[in-house]
Design a protein around this nucleic acid. Structure first.
Length: 344
DNA sequence: CAGGCGTGGGA
DNA sequence: TTCCCAAGCCT
């Protein structure tokens, strides 16, 4: 059965592969051409927990601004954080830069094996396997959320995630061979993204429907089963948005680790049930409304206070920026809109 | 190793 | 509205 599934899915991929900017065309692939690791690595890191539609404009901007890994390695931290702003999971941006700098020290050459790729910052089990398979034809076992969903259905694995992970990895390994490993990995992911979707999968047009155990049992929409999730607590904060008479805003670089680490944001209290902390400078603070924002593990309700201050104002913390909203994470960008509205 | 870590879009 | 989710990694 595995052999038939492989042939059916690779055949489907030959005619239905998504045309993504970091991919090379089928004709070049057939001639043995493989994509460069830099654009593939960049796309894989951006795609971690992030949709293709959200990634594409960022990927284009990054590759235009920094066409090579060595160009990226030479970039200023702040420029990379600004370019990443809005994409989320900012530790990825910090690791991206750290990884680029390690690769630059190897003359800009990425390692060519899964095991060596795995050593680089921000490259975990999935990403190492994906790059090794796509760029270097290594028959690595590539397991991401798509693969878990497809294999749980194909083999009707009813055990809930995350407990089912080891078994699903075994199933995925049983399907992996040295035949076109990069195409295979991308074929399964394309199937998961376009047909074998989380809700209401399009089984009628699925190239491997006849081998799908979940479909036979009529339980495809219930798989993969997942352990129940916990409720998200509510935290509060106060943001201080000070605008100087020359138009500069008082912003603060956040600590490198933790929530929104390394990004530019407003001076803020701590984020807690009962926040504590004072403003970064004495001013006539005005209420500018609240911003509610949902994070993965909690909800934040931030009270925005805005003030207009003179050009000689000296803050206790933060720095004045002629900031553009695009340099801010979404949460802070929303707060900036509130503050600007309150001051105008 | 369970939990921390963003965001925007769809049902 | 609310919930769930989308090519995970790190500690």
């Amino acid at each position: 059965m595995c052999q038939e599934v492989r042939e059916a899915l690779l055949g489907w991929y030959d005619g239905h592969a998504r045309d993504l900017p970091w991919r090379i065309g089928p004709a070049a692939r057939a001639r043995g051409v493989r994509p460069e690791p830099y654009p593939v690595w960049l796309s894989e890191v951006m795609l971690q927990q992030t949709t293709v539609a959200a990634v594409i404009p960022y990927w284009r901007r990054f590759t235009e601004t920094w066409p090579t890994v060595e160009a990226l390695a030479a970039a200023e931290d702040g420029a990379v954080m600004a370019a990443w702003a809005g994409l989320g999971y900012y530790a990825r941006a910090r690791n991206l830069l750290a990884c680029a700098r390690e690769v630059a020290m190897r003359d800009g050459r990425f390692p060519e094996t899964e095991a060596e790729l795995r050593e680089l910052p921000g490259i975990g089990r999935y990403t190492a396997a994906a790059i090794a398979a796509i760029c270097f034809d290594e028959p690595a076992v590539v397991v991401d959320g798509n693969v878990e969903r497809v294999t749980s259905r194909l083999f009707a694995v009813r055990t809930p995630l995350p407990g089912a992970r080891p078994l699903l990895r075994e199933k995925a390994a049983s399907l992996t061979t040295p035949v076109r490993p990069g195409d295979w990995a991308q074929a399964v992911m394309d199937l998961g993204a376009t047909i074998c979707t989380p809700r209401s999968p399009a089984c009628a047009i699925c190239p491997v429907m006849r081998w799908c155990e979940a479909r036979k049992a009529g339980i495809q929409s219930d798989l993969p089963a997942k352990a129940p999730k916990k409720a998200r607590p509510l935290k509060r904060a106060v943001f201080w948005a000070a605008r100087r008479a020359d138009g500069a805003w008082l912003l603060e670089r956040r600590p490198p680790k933790g929530m929104l680490g390394g990004t530019l944001g407003w001076p803020t209290t701590n984020w807690a049930e009962k926040p504590e902390g004072g403003p970064p400078l004495a001013a006539e603070w005005r209420e500018a409304g609240t911003v509610d924002h949902g994070f993965t593990h909690y909800l934040l309700s931030a009270e925005v206070r805005a003030a207009e201050v003179g050009v000689d104002a000296v803050p206790e913390r933060g720095e004045w920026h002629q900031a553009v909203p695009s340099e801010l994470p979404t949460l802070f960008r929303k707060a900036m809109e509130r503050a600007a509205a309150a001051l105008d």
